[in-house]
């Protein structure tokens, strides 16, 4: 089987934000390296999960890939085309193919628009539909695709529950028939029973439409369920990337190991049999990151060289890469 062309190739992506201080905040006092040299590929039809704690740069990375924020350096190749330096106008046709589903289904929908108009807005903005009839048909089709009644399209966002709002957000993202959908914490604001509905919907839509997902989340159980491969980030860097089963069954990076150990499993028997590795301290400020490996101050395995040099992400076995001096 020949390897298909990746949908998305990210090479040494960096996103830095200036930090201003001083009396009137006019002086630049530092730089936050939100995304600091990230490289990976996403293949067609797969789901790449991205996990990490607050401040690891996962959301910033998602926005940068969609070119919704400026990148500092690096390359983003989408469908074979380098989009890292495209101008606004040139990005427009590319955007049709890459869409985003947001975390907060309350904040992401305009409260003054009806659901059908929210879903149809991208069609209008990109001038897709040939006529009114085609437009209406497409909006109805989208509503049904995400499990909503066509009549519900007449309602306003506040008339929907959290789960239904997320369905509207998904319908809107799918309106332009994208190939890549970046999902940023799409279920973390939802209750458990509703979360499962949305996860199943995203999986069914992927099968039906051949979508490729970049699935960003902090919940390791959700990411395990939905992803084919998983990437772990810490302070703007990729520390480990592997197939789902390799990453969850044989995590290599001490941070990945600690992260998995910290998640309580919903089974008292499993919990009783488990030895929990507790990490010391919290994620350091990205304004003043540690030297060497960013994880070394919290790492029980840290050696002197961890303090000095940043380990490079290297392949251990097929497809399993880790950035750690231990390997």
């Amino acid at each position: 089987m020949s390897q298909p062309e990746p949908v998305l190739v990210v090479e040494d992506l960096k996103v830095e934000f200036p930090v201003h201080g001083g009396l009137l905040g006019g002086r630049r006092i530092g730089t936050v390296k939100a995304v600091d040299g990230v490289s990976f590929e996403v293949n067609p039809g797969e789901t790449l999960g991205v996990v990490g704690e607050s401040g690891c740069g996962k959301t910033t990375m998602g926005l940068a890939i969609l070119r919704m924020i400026d990148i500092t350096s690096g390359r983003i190749v989408f469908d074979g085309e380098d989009i890292s330096t495209l101008e606004r106008a040139a990005m427009r046709p590319v955007r049709r193919k890459m869409q985003m589903v947001y975390q907060d289904p309350f904040g992401a929908l305009d409260p003054r628009m009806r659901a059908k108009d929210i879903i149809g807005e991208p069609l209008v903005a990109h001038g897709i539909s040939e006529n009114r009839e085609a437009y209406r048909e497409r909006v109805s089709e989208l509503l049904e695709m995400v499990g909503l009644d066509v009549v519900m399209g007449e309602r306003y966002p506040h008339e929907f529950s959290g789960g239904q709002r997320q369905r509207i957000g998904i319908a809107r993202a799918l309106a332009l028939r994208p190939t890549l959908v970046v999902c940023d914490e799409p279920v973390s604001a939802l209750d458990v029973s509703i979360q499962a509905q949305i996860i199943n919907l995203l999986e069914a839509l992927q099968d039906e439409l051949g979508l490729t997902y970049l699935f960003i989340a902090h919940d390791l159980s959700v990411v395990q369920h939905i992803s084919d491969r998983v990437m772990v980030m810490y302070l703007g860097k990729v520390v480990e990337i592997a197939n789902r089963s390799d990453l969850y069954r044989a995590p290599k990076h001490p941070y990945t190991q600690a992260l998995l150990s910290a998640v309580p499993m919903p089974s008292p028997d499993a919990e009783a049999a488990r030895e929990v590795v507790l990490l010391e301290g919290e994620v350091p400020s990205p304004l003043n990151p540690p030297t060497g490996c960013p994880f070394h101050p919290r790492c029980s395995m840290a050696r002197p060289d961890c303090r000095e040099t940043m380990p490079v992400l290297t392949e251990q076995n097929t497809g399993h890469k880790v950035a750690c001096h231990l390997y």
């Binding site: 458990v192 199943n200 159980s221 959700v222 395990q224 369920h225 499993m265």
Partner: peptide, 14 residues
């Protein structure tokens, strides 16, 4: 619930 100790091949039952 998606669970770390669960079998990921099966769909969740919401």
């Amino acid at each position: 619930l998606p669970r770390l100790d669960g079998d990921v091949r099966f769909a969740l039952q919401p």
